[in-house]
């Protein structure tokens, strides 16, 4: 053995006693991964939106046509609360109240989506703002549309679970899966806060 090796002294560690060996739930880890990936997509769209604020060469401008969707936002944000209540219910095995809160969540989400539909209808048919009208239109429909598409996916998932609940297939042992799905819904809500701030406050 050469001297060089001797110089790199080895450090002996005492072996620790084995702890109980627990690992995180794979569903939760996967959902966190998906959320991280989705966050990156939204970040890019949000950056594109912010960068292009005020860069449109012709109208209509956000100030002229956008109305702040307060009722909509309240619906969506409160759905985070209702889904949280339903998570609690299923954890304790109260399937009935779970179904109730879950259904309410779905309704709130649906109202939000309908509200977006109404808003877009007005923008397109009254204000003549489409995705190709100007930069504002392009970035607005893309960002809000991206979020809306996530709401749609969420609603489909919510509906599926709702159907299972109604047909009596959801039991307490599904609590974990339901919580994972709820994570996604919380994420969609949280993103709305950012989209809302950027589009309706910063951008107006």
């Amino acid at each position: 053995m050469s001297e060089g090796v001797e110089a790199m002294s080895t450090i002996a560690l005492v072996q620790e006693p084995e702890h109980a060996f627990t690992q995180p739930s794979k569903g939760r880890v996967a959902m966190f991964c998906v959320i991280i990936a989705e966050s990156a997509i939204f970040t890019i769209f949000v950056v594109a939106y912010i960068y292009n604020i005020g860069k449109s060469l012709y109208g209509p401008t956000p100030r002229q046509v956008l109305e702040i969707p307060i009722f909509n936002s309240i619906c969506l944000l409160s759905s985070s609360l209702t889904i949280w209540l339903s998570e609690h219910a299923i954890e304790r095995g109260k399937v009935k109240s779970f179904g109730l809160w879950w259904g309410l969540t779905f309704v709130l989400g649906a109202i939000f989506l309908a509200g977006t539909g109404v808003e877009w209808h007005k923008l397109i048919y009254e204000d003549g703002l489409t995705i190709s009208t100007n930069l504002f239109g392009t970035t607005f429909y893309s960002l809000v549309g991206l979020h809306a598409s996530h709401v749609i996916i969420g609603l489909i998932a919510l509906l599926t679970v709702l159907l299972f609940t109604v047909t009596g297939h959801v039991r307490q042992e599904h609590a974990e899966r339901i919580q994972i799905l709820a994570l996604y819904w919380h994420f969609v809500d949280a993103v709305w806060i950012i989209v809302f701030t950027v589009v309706y406050i910063l951008g107006r």
Partner: peptide
């Protein structure tokens, strides 16, 4: 496809 302007330098895109 949709006539957007993200990268359309003629319409203020970058």
């Amino acid at each position: 496809y949709l006539g957007g302007h993200f990268f359309d330098t003629q319409a203020g895109g970058s």
